[in-house]
Design a protein around this nucleic acid. Structure first.
Length: 254
DNA sequence: ATGGTTGCAACGCAA
């Protein structure tokens, strides 16, 4: 079973890339972020034609998440309990025996901004939610654009980034508290090296120079992680014409 | 030198 996450930065623009990638990678479940589409505009017909069921929580212009699955999708939730938020950043659902939580964690903008405090508040609500979800669903994955590079090895220039949003201590502590609930970073089960990134700024030739950050993750509950056979970052779509600034991260399970 | 690119949608905002 292949489980993937991809921040597509506009599903309208990236639909051709997504369809091409679905055909080549053949994932069973794909979590999408930054669809930037209202639900009425979601390309359900094209994706069903490609063999996927769809669940989505969209909004105009910003945010928006979706899950595509070859198997049926049930028990959908689109909010963190007790955290009223008009921004569409959460899609929890069940596929087979696995609970999947698709997350588009707030970016935070800068550490001195209101958006940064929103990010930390949001992560606290996520932690409370995941604590309960893990108890209810021993086989669980929390995937998505976390907008956090967990360690310096996940950052192309740690000294230049020190203290910035996406790497700040408070964000990393929130990420560590989340994993301490009982998640495993599947990529790190198979690769402990630096230099592997899932996002590169569009500006300044970021991808060409591999000036990236590893901020998109497939976290698996301990019981699900026991079934993990591999995890990869597929950088190829970043080489295509008019790419997303993020690439798919994929984990394989038995 | 505090830049730059993209998407949305409207001439700014978010990433």
């Amino acid at each position: 079973m292949l489980l993937a996450t991809w921040n597509v930065n506009s599903l309208k623009v990236r639909l051709p890339h997504l369809l091409t990638w679905l055909q080549s990678a053949r994932p069973d479940i794909v979590a999408l972020q930054e669809t930037k589409l209202v639900d009425e505009a979601f390309p359900t017909a094209e994706l069903e034609e490609a063999g996927y069921h769809c669940a989505f929580a969209g909004q105009k212009t910003y945010n928006g998440v979706a899950v595509l699955s070859r198997e049926a999708i049930t028990d959908v939730v689109t909010d963190l309990p007790g955290y009223a938020d008009p921004q569409r950043r959460v899609l929890g659902c069940t596929v087979g025996d696995v609970r999947v939580l698709n997350l588009y964690v707030p970016n935070g903008q800068t550490v001195d901004s209101e958006k940064y405090h929103y990010k930390l508040d949001w992560l606290k609500a996520l932690e409370d939610f995941c604590r309960d979800e893990l108890k209810a669903h021993p086989l669980m994955a929390a995937v998505g654009d976390f907008n956090i590079a967990p360690a310096d090895r996940d950052v192309h220039d740690p000294d230049a980034w020190r203290g910035s949003v996406l790497v700040s201590p408070a964000e990393r502590e929130a990420f560590d508290r989340l994993t301490a609930l009982g998640f495993v970073d599947t990529f790190r089960l198979f690769n402990s090296d630096g230099g592997f990134y899932s996002w590169w700024d569009y500006r300044m030739g970021g991808f060409r120079r591999n000036h990236g950050l590893r901020i998109d993750h497939v976290l698996a509950s301990k019981q699900l992680a026991e079934r993990c056979l591999g995890a990869t970052i597929d950088v190829e779509p970043r080489t295509w014409n008019r790419p997303s600034d993020h690439v798919p991260v994929v984990a394989r399970f038995s």
